[in-house]
Amino acid sequence: MRSDKFHNRAKFIGAQVIGRSFINKYFNKFVYYDLEAKRVLEHRPLGALRKNVIRFDSQLEFEVFRVIARYFPIEHIDFHFKIELKPKTQYSGTTNYFVDFRVKTSLNEYLFLEAKGLMTKEASLKIKLLEILKPEIHSKLIICSAKKEFYFGKSYPSSVPLESLNNVILSNYATHRRY
């Protein structure tokens, strides 16, 4: 009975249950990480997530977090940071872009990182809106991909393969990483 309730809830939020694992609509497996214990959880915790447990939407997003966490304290990393692209009007609702990570690199300086395995039309549109409406954020956005064949090239900001992310952080933010 209990698994039916979780299965129905998972379908409602665009996810599927396979065994005891949860996957999202792009067939990425969610990763649950305990910040206090510094370990990946085997299964999704029942009920509401504790404040020290972070849900990553994919393994790639978790791998990007691991790279960032080597260079910046956890307190300086904002997960799934909301950027309002267009405010609510009487004719339409708010348009938001949720970037995977906002990292405080120094006093009032931020780096924005997005883990993308596949560039969807919606993500592409929101990145273009970000470029037009928030150029100061767009200029600090790095899109990280898992494989070189998913490298998004010059049409998107600073896209790098996962294996190059260490070098990008070291070369551009090495002076900011110690607090």
Rank of each mutant, 00 (worst) to 15 (best):
M1R: 13
K5D: 11
R9M: 09
A10L: 03
F12Q: 12
F12R: 12
V17S: 08
V17C: 09
G19E: 02
I23V: 15
K25P: 00
F27D: 13
F27V: 15
K29C: 01
F30T: 02
V31W: 04
Y32L: 00
Y32Q: 02
Y32H: 04
Y33M: 01
D34E: 01
E36M: 05
E36K: 15
A37R: 13
R39E: 08
L41V: 03
E42M: 04
R44L: 00
L46C: 10
L46T: 15
L49W: 08
N52L: 02
I54W: 02
S58V: 05
Q59V: 14
E61W: 03
F62N: 00
E63S: 11
F65N: 06
I68W: 01
I68Y: 03
A69K: 08
A69P: 04
E75K: 15
E75H: 12
H76P: 03
H76C: 11
H80E: 07
K82M: 01
K82E: 05
P87E: 10
T89Y: 11
Y91T: 15
S92K: 13
T95Q: 06
N96H: 11
Y97W: 09
V99E: 03
V99A: 12
F101R: 04
F101P: 12
R102P: 03
R102Y: 10
V103G: 00
K104W: 02
T105F: 03
S106G: 04
N108H: 14
N108F: 05
E109C: 12
E109L: 05
L111N: 07
F112M: 05
F112R: 01
E114N: 14
G117K: 03
L118Y: 15
T120P: 00
K121L: 04
E122L: 05
S124D: 14
S124E: 06
K126H: 13
I127F: 09
K128R: 08
L129S: 09
L130K: 14
E131L: 09
I132Q: 09
I137Y: 03
I137N: 01
L141Q: 04
I142N: 05
S145D: 03
K147M: 01
K147W: 02
K148F: 02
K148H: 11
E149I: 14
K154F: 08
Y156V: 09
P157Y: 08
P157H: 12
S159V: 00
V160W: 04
L162E: 02
L165H: 09
N166T: 08
N167E: 07
L170W: 08
L170N: 10
N172F: 06
A174E: 04
T175Y: 10
H176W: 07
H176C: 11
R177N: 11
